[in-house]
C-alpha cells in the first residue's frame, strides 16, 4: 500500500510509456501498434475522426481496458505487473464524467481522494485546491445531479486531478463547456501540465492548437502522426495525416 500512496516522481521515468498497443474490439473497430512516450510538462492532443480509436486508446492507457498486446507503464509502474501502483499515478476523465448524482460535490471529491489513497490533512488540502482550481466553491454543497453539464464536467476533472497524478487523461474535456468555461479549462490544463503529463482527446483542432504542445493523430486505429505542435497550421497537418 505504501507504494500505491507514493506519488514520488522518478525523474528518469517517463510519465507514460506505452509500447505497441493493440486492441481489437470488433470487425470494424480496433487500435493497432500505438506507441507513446510522455514526460511531465507535455500536453498531448490526441486527434482523430469519430471512431478513429481515441477513446479505446485512452481506455487502454487508463487501465480500463487491457490491450491484446503491448504494454503500458505509468511513472515507471507497469500496468500489467503493478496495476494498483500504476493506476495510483493517473487521473482519468472519460467522455461521460463518472459522477454520482446523489452525492454532494464535496462528498464526491472526498471519495475520489480516499480511493486514491489520500487521507486527513493531505486530503483536505488537495480537496480545497481542486475545488478552487476547478471553480467549484459555489456548488460545493450541492448535489451533483442538480448541476449543469459544464459543472459536472468540472467535478469530473477535479476527481481526476485530486491526487496530483503523473499522467492526466482527458477524453473530450471541453464537452458541455461554454466559451468562458472553455477558457478557464485551458488555463487549468496549462497549470496542471507544470507537474503532470496531460493527454486530451478532442476533435476540435482549435482546442488542440490552443492547449497542446504536442499532437498525435489517430486514423483508423493507427497512430499516423506524433509531433510537436509549434504553431504550424494544424488543419494542414491533420488533413495530410488522414488522407
Amino acid at each position: 500500500m505504501a507504494a500505491v500512496l507514493d506519488n514520488t516522481i522518478e525523474t528518469n521515468n517517463f510519465a507514460l510509456n506505452a509500447d505497441s498497443l493493440c486492441r481489437r474490439l470488433s470487425e470494424s473497430a480496433s487500435v493497432s501498434d500505438v506507441t507513446l512516450q510522455m514526460r511531465r510538462g507535455e500536453v498531448l492532443g490526441l486527434l482523430g475522426l469519430n471512431g478513429a480509436g481515441k477513446t479505446t486508446t485512452l481506455r487502454m492507457l487508463s487501465g480500463v481496458l487491457v490491450p491484446d498486446s503491448g504494454s503500458v507503464s505509468i511513472n515507471g509502474f507497469s500496468m500489467h505487473d503493478q496495476p494498483l501502483q500504476a493506476r495510483a499515478q493517473l487521473g482519468y476523465l472519460p467522455d461521460q464524467p463518472p459522477v454520482y448524482d446523489d452525492l454532494r460535490v464535496h462528498e464526491y471529491l472526498t471519495l475520489a481522494g480516499k480511493i486514491r489513497g489520500l487521507r486527513s490533512n493531505r486530503l483536505s488540502l488537495q480537496q480545497s485546491l481542486v475545488t478552487e482550481q476547478c471553480m467549484l466553491g459555489d456548488v460545493n454543497q450541492k448535489r451533483i445531479g442538480t448541476l449543469s453539464k459544464g459543472y459536472k464536467q468540472r467535478v469530473g476533472l477535479a476527481q481526476a486531478m485530486i491526487h496530483q497524478p503523473a499522467l492526466l487523461l482527458l477524453d473530450e474535456p471541453s464537452n458541455g463547456l461554454d466559451p468562458q468555461q472553455l477558457d478557464s479549462m485551458r488555463t487549468l490544463i496549462a497549470t496542471i501540465a507544470q507537474t503532470s503529463a496531460v493527454i486530451l482527446s478532442t476533435h476540435l483542432l482549435s482546442e488542440a492548437q490552443a492547449i497542446c504542445n504536442r499532437v498525435a493523430i489517430i486514423h483508423e486505429g493507427k497512430l499516423v502522426t506524433d509531433q510537436a505542435s509549434d504553431g504550424e497550421n494544424l488543419e494542414h497537418i491533420f488533413q495530410g495525416a488522414i488522407r
Binding site: V4, Q85, Y92, I115, G117
Partner: peptide, 14 residues
C-alpha cells in the same frame, strides 16, 4: 448504466 464504473476501473482499487 450511469457510466460511473470508469471511476473504479481507473483507480487503485482491486
Amino acid at each position: 448504466r450511469q457510466q460511473t464504473f470508469a471511476l473504479w476501473q481507473s483507480s487503485p482499487v482491486s
